[in-house]
Design a binder for these strands. Structure first.
Lengths: 198, 198
DNA sequence: CAACTATACGGAACAGTGTTCCGGATATCA
DNA sequence: TGATATCCGGAACACTGTTCCGTATAGTTG
């Protein structure tokens, strides 16, 4: 921790501006490539789109997963912040929960392959952690309110629910016979039924 | 179709017995490797376990996915055949549906990575088709009986339900906080509620 | 303004996938 | 005992993510 305070206190030399610019270019290029080819686009494709070498990517983002996290960090945070807002603006706690989960589903489904990436042990570890840390608490509040059920009971866990929904969104959007929102709606009905039974 | 009948009618030379033996060795080796390392084990690992070259695998199974299908074909068929049996032996149609789906979940969860493989567009295409063809009709019957609902209504589709459950099983077994059977139970409750609402 | 150095860059190289290919071995038949 | 259709082994290819290091440059210092 000595080194940490040293690093943040006395900066022998600030980060070079070209490095900062490149990091920005990388984030924009990655976002663009991800919408065009899915989040499992090759690292080289992102590098090419940004006009940099692959080495530059790995300097700024030690692993492919961390680039993905960086690209979607803002949207995850926005989703988390929408929770409390919906809680007060909705007609009922259940409506708030369902509206928020719709947000979550739409987010996952529109980013092709994001839900799948969340599973892949290697790629998903970093993603998973960030999603869990930011979204689970919000979901827990909404769920407790909707189920009229003190958190900590034996009903479905907020983690369980988010993870389940994440799973349900995998591959949706590339299968017309499988409508993620429909399926999630059914799942949430079951979750609420079980939670209220306690 | 002329060539097909030719091939099945006049066999200028039967399949060589060493080829047949190798196919068998391959299936056994693959099954063994899959339980040890998951269904996403490298093709080379299966080849090594069987004591053959990779070329031999690709002669018998044109693609990695078809090897996986071949390994699990029997178990899928067994699961499909268990449907009608449970239908008559269970206390209620809903009990039959739930028991059968438990079979399905256990099957997916015990084969590490099988559920995930079902998603991967490339790997999963062959798997997906086989699962769908054999399991969806059975599920449709059980579902219709449990929901007391003539097939063809606007409720959840049998395909949708199986696909949803398949998704829910992804990564279960490597995450103690996520119990696939619990989650699936909740989902099925929601499905039945929606189906009966029609 | 002119070195000088810490920092950042590019892209070749490495390791691990699935898949293809073909020269050589071999089972089967005449 | 050949003849040959069939099959086999494993090198080679295309494509991943990731690492490495010589080179270029931004920022500092004299």
């Amino acid at each position: 921790m000595t080194s940490a305070s040293e690093a943040s206190m006395s900066s022998p030399r600030a980060k070079r501006v070209d490095a900062f610019r490149n990091e920005q270019k990388l984030l924009e290029a990655a976002a663009s490539v991800f919408v065009a080819s899915g989040v499992d686009a090759p690292v080289r494709a992102v590098a090419a789109a940004a006009g940099v070498g692959v080495g530059t990517i790995y300097r700024h983002f030690p692993t492919r997963a961390e680039l993905v996290v960086a690209v979607y960090r803002h949207q995850v945070d926005a989703c988390a912040e929408a929770g409390p807002r919906l809680m007060t603006s909705s007609a009922s706690p259940e409506a708030a929960l369902r509206a928020w989960l719709d947000l979550f589903v739409d987010f996952l489904v529109t980013k092709h392959g994001l839900a799948a990436a969340l599973q892949d042990e290697k790629v998903g570890a970093a993603l998973h952690r960030h999603f869990v840390d930011h979204l689970v608490p919000v979901c827990a509040d909404l769920l407790a309110a909707a189920a009229d059920h003190p958190p900590g009971g034996a009903g479905p866990t907020a983690y369980e629910v988010l993870r389940g929904i994440g799973n349900l969104c995998i591959g949706a959007g590339s299968d017309p016979q499988f409508d993620a929102r429909r399926v999630v709606r059914a799942y949430v009905s079951g979750v609420l039924a079980e939670a209220r039974r306690e």
